[in-house]
Design a protein around this nucleic acid. Sequence first.
DNA 1: GGTTCATTCATACGTTCGTTTCAATCGAAC
DNA 2: GTTCGATTGAAACGAACGTATGAATGAACC
Lengths: 209, 209
Amino acid sequence: MAQPDTRTQILDAAEHLFAERGYRGTSVRAVTDLAGANLAAVGYHFGSKAELLAAVARRVIEPINAAQCAGLDRLLARTPDPSVTELVEAFAGPLFDGTRAGDEGGARTSRLIVTILSDPAEEARSWTGPDEDTVRERYLAAFARALPGLSPEELRFRMRGILAVTAIDRVEVYQQPSPACLTPVAGESTRHWAITFLTAAMSAPPTRT
Amino acid sequence: MAQPDTRTQILDAAEHLFAERGYRGTSVRAVTDLAGANLAAVGYHFGSKAELLAAVARRVIEPINAAQCAGLDRLLARTPDPSVTELVEAFAGPLFDGTRAGDEGGARTSRLIVTILSDPAEEARSWTGPDEDTVRERYLAAFARALPGLSPEELRFRMRGILAVTAIDRVEVYQQPSPACLTPVAGESTRHWAITFLTAAMSAPPTRT
DNA sequence: GGTTCATTCATACGTTCGTTTCAATCGAAC
DNA sequence: GTTCGATTGAAACGAACGTATGAATGAACC
């Protein structure tokens, strides 16, 4: 809480606004206003709006990726064949951990991730590094061993399902305050529900073709 | 294929572009150019860009909603207690049916739906009518009977999971041509995989608290 | 005290956006 | 043939956008 430097204040503001209004819905001026910085500061510190988004995305994704990787390492150190539940927990768990200060229990991070992933803007997709692919490939191999008989295509579909469930649940809550359905659910229970839901889904027998 | 009137040509073009580039990423000029219409035609026929989006969304969602409703009616006419599989199929199935001509097997419709649902723009959320809530409430009740012991909150979470899986799978494919993971999966198999995945997920025992 | 370098500031540029305006056009009714 | 309502056309408006520019600032170092 000392004197936060302009660069991280811009990152914080951009993370907040990108999560809430999307990339295209957030103007550079809105970011700098919220950050209490000058308009030109974005150009100076990041080069462009797209590079600012890449920096925000990296800062959010990297710890998640590291946690996923560490979780798999921990499992594989114990046994060469972790269970589906363990794999689901190690993979999906970090997606629920909003470790960043000021994040409302990870909800803001989730919103940001889905905003980035589902934004059709090209800039939103240029930040991905090889790390994300690597960790996903490792989990893919581990799941393949835990789920013999499942075709690679269906396995890939199911892993996409994990990302979908973990990423979108809070978003729809956030943007659909309809009282009839989809009322917001706070707290840690979401994480447990997701683990239950996804473990059962991943463990389903292969679709007979 | 006779002489398509300007209004529907604009609707078609807008549906295509909104699905591909999102609401904010699509300019009115791009829509009218693709439709071969004049820029002012949008204002004349729809009033504004936001109302054009609402019209597009209504045209896409309404048949899906009707199919979901008819499917539930058909099930309930046979038995008062349909199985989880039947409910999942009746609810999620229509989300995969791209009945509109020109749609690439429903993929474009899926993209449009998730684009609309995940767009943080306020305009993207103003089209919902009471019908969507009604059909969801009916399925909610049917699932509650099929899954006794599940708390209403967790049931709602799982229904959100259905929407997440059906909505997002093709989107991430669409926007992530990474060769490492998540390669596109075409055809009808996606629908079967989703039914398998979601039936198992919905049938999971309640999360012990 | 003067120089240097990184950073911040106010401001402007050029573009694109959604919307509006008003004249032109067309077919049908009289 | 004229009138009239509906539709289309070309053009323009004001606002907001991302970005670039060059001067001001301020602390660190000689």
